[in-house]
């Protein structure tokens, strides 16, 4: 088992990298790796409620986020600075996530065996 940190940096639906990153994260979790997900920059927008990915011709991979618990993905960090930049708070998010300062995110990256950025 390895400690894998998956970092999301892109806005939803403009590119497909997040969708394929989520696929990787869920697969890693089902292979019983220790996972930490970090949403930063525009990727924090993935976590907003009431999204309609179909309107952008995208598969609804966002609703999968509610299943993170089922996959035993406990560590979901949201970059505090990025949220503030969009005028958002944790209450705006559709899933429960941990507000993280850049220091906390740095610690997670240092603790991880491998880091993947999508």
């Amino acid at each position: 088992m390895k400690h894998i940190c998956v970092v999301f940096r892109h806005a939803p639906f403009g590119a497909t990298s997040s969708r394929e990153g989520i696929d990787f994260a869920l697969l890693s979790a089902s292979f019983e790796q220790q996972l930490c997900l970090v949403f930063t920059d525009e990727a924090v927008l993935h976590l907003l409620a009431d999204q309609q990915p179909e309107l952008a011709g995208s598969k609804d991979y966002v609703s999968v986020f509610k299943a993170f618990d089922l996959y035993d993905i406990e560590h979901v960090l949201v970059c505090e600075t990025s949220l503030q930049r969009f005028g958002l708070t944790l209450e705006d998010l559709a899933i429960s996530a941990q507000l993280a300062s850049s220091t906390v995110i740095t610690e997670q990256l240092q603790q991880a065996d491998e880091v993947l950025v999508f």
């Binding site: 894998i4 697969l27 491998e114």
Partner: peptide, 18 residues
């Protein structure tokens, strides 16, 4: 192959580079 091969590969390797 499947994504699982990436995960097991990462698990077995000393270094993963993307």
């Amino acid at each position: 192959g499947g994504l699982g091969e990436l995960v097991t590969g990462i698990e077995q390797a000393d270094r993963f580079v993307s």
